[in-house]
Design a protein around this nucleic acid. Structure first.
Lengths: 129, 129, 129, 129
DNA sequence: GTGGTCTAGACCACT
DNA sequence: GTGGTCTAGACCACG
């Protein structure tokens, strides 16, 4: 379910947060789904429970999951919509990145080409429906 | 010349490095130009000289500037080309970002539109040549 | 009769205790009234019977209800008076809250206004008597 | 500066958060002021540094302080305004509490009286100016 | 067994 | 010396 790289510069707890968000965006995790318990996930990933806990607290803070003490952590009903909104605000990041790439002499056409490829790949499943 | 945010999460020395690189890419700094001295820049920005020094060392390590002991630090002849190559490796970041945005339900068309706008804006000067 | 939010930070059994007390204060539950049986309430609210039991034990401890083994749980004769006394001790909470609100720049007049409105609303039924 | 009660039901880190906010509201801490370092405060209060850290993270999340790694934690420029806004949303809590107190038979007049007293006390300094 | 909190002690990047 | 992160292990309230 998760793939952690302990040696990465990115904190482990952040990796868990991001991957959880991606799982929600891809539909692998849906509203109401129960997350693995803090302890079980700690064992599975060979990570300290506190690190998992920190990731879950952050996810809760963002409204992605809801903690029910004594029961577990569950994907929030609004999780998917929240992420869509949040990601929308990342269009700024897109602009900044593109501007830099263009300044570095990368052709607009190349970026468009990549965009087409990615769109085709990402939406394959969606189109079949 | 530089705009430093001391409270930012990004280390001050990294801000200097990045902004210098951007200045090179935009053409504000050209091969042979002299960088401000460590001490003068430290005074100007109200920053510890060690921090400036660390930034210059990093820029030197990357081949963006060259230190001429006793004279100063100068933009390397190959600076612009080096940066173009480096930025090329950021195409991975572009792919990742685009993939996330598409997952978040943002239309391919919108991204293409933005790309066009940015390209038109960024290349205005270039077209005159 | 009860509205339980399982995902709330407040323990379920505490929610039952508080809502029972409120029902007594509003007059919905009067001395001698029989409470729902542990098992029936557990089914109705889709909650573990142990949780209901814990709530009833707490209510009994506070003197709000009295258990009649084999018969059921009944609102104690002194329930209403007890609650009035208890709530009196919440005047401290009132003081603390008001102090904070004033510090936050909220006008005394606004608080007085709200107080008047609430008094008018809450006591409507009482005046008819 | 802080008064911690380790045996309280309220987590230690929350006590620190709340007391910091109060200090901002009362004007004891102003924008730009430096908070005690994580370690020094830990020693002063005989508390584990991680607990202080957790409190500071929460304060940072709320926008009350800003962390500058390697430098310290500083009161955010917007801290005071943020708290005023936040506290404003606590008017709901005021309404709820007052409603309960009225239900418990406490006279409106008594609450008004207390309100007057508190207002006189809190604003003493302000009036002198 | 679950999450929430705390302690003790460690390493790292940064100033 | 500062904050940021992580580990190891403990206790509590809750269901």
């Amino acid at each position: 379910m998760f793939r952690i790289e302990p040696l990465s510069r990115q904190p482990v707890y952040e990796q868990i947060v991001e991957q959880t968000e991606t799982l929600v965006l891809t539909g692998s995790l849906k509203a109401g789904d129960q997350m693995p318990s803090v302890r079980s996930l700690a064992v599975t990933l060979s990570i300290n429970p506190n690190t998992i806990q920190k990731a879950y607290i952050e996810l809760d803070r963002r409204g992605i999951i809801q903690a029910a003490p004594g029961k577990g952590n569950f994907i929030s009903p609004a999780a998917y919509d929240l992420l869509c909104q949040t990601k929308r605000s990342q269009l700024d990041a897109f602009d900044t990145l593109v501007r830099e790439l263009l300044l570095a002499g990368i052709e607009k056409e190349e970026l468009c080409g990549r965009l087409d490829t990615l769109a085709a790949t990402s939406l394959k499943g969606e189109c079949d429906v």
